[in-house]
């Protein structure tokens, strides 16, 4: 029998039977069908699977789902709210922060974590914070521009002074 995991995913509490050795990414993708989170490597190399756990970025391919009993997980699917794209999604779309789009969910979630702790990151701070998220298409230029463009809107959504 698989133990029951109580976990909050994208604001909704769930009770799911999850094997102890199920990775968080597999739990999200296979069990909850939240396929926005991507696997790009064999573990911990590329950041494509980045989700937020209690607001901090985590690689969902390197952690067991069972270790997040009682915790709050946010995936790319949580960014779409009230029928619209988040400021980060809007900016990545308009500034071409996504080409093939495969690294994008992880990139946006890593950027989300950054903007929550640093409302006005400099270019260097963005490079530092997203340095673990690989992208093969863009040369990163437009990703950085996207994060910069999203910052003011992000401040508004989090109620911080713009």
């Amino acid at each position: 029998m698989k133990p029951i995991l109580r976990i909050q995913v994208n604001g909704r509490w769930r009770e799911e039977a999850v094997a102890d050795n199920t990775l968080l990414i597999d739990f999200l993708r296979e069990q909850l069908q939240l396929t926005g989170t991507k696997q790009g490597c064999d573990g911990g190399e590329c950041g494509a699977c980045t989700v937020l756990v209690d607001g901090r970025p985590r690689l969902s391919c390197c952690a067991f789902a069972a270790s997040f009993e009682g915790h709050h997980v946010e995936t790319i699917e949580s960014q779409w709210q009230d029928g619209q794209m988040s400021p980060l999604q809007q900016a990545f779309h308009e500034k071409l922060g996504a080409q093939c789009g495969y690294c994008t969910p992880g990139m946006i979630m890593a950027a989300e974590a950054l903007l929550r702790t640093n409302a006005e990151p400099s270019e260097a701070e963005i490079r530092q914070a997203l340095g673990g998220n690989l992208c093969r298409c863009t040369g990163y230029v437009k990703i950085i521009e996207s994060v910069q463009a999203a910052a003011p809107g992000h401040r508004q959504t989090t109620g911080e002074p713009a």
């Binding site: 396929t35 699917e77 794209m85 779309h93 922060g97 495969y102």
Partner: peptide, 23 residues
Amino acid sequence: MPLYDGVEKVTGRAKYTADLFPR
């Protein structure tokens, strides 16, 4: 122009092959 299929990509709704695997 933003990509025609850009919204799908930034929202995570874009289905890549492995996202379409029947269970």
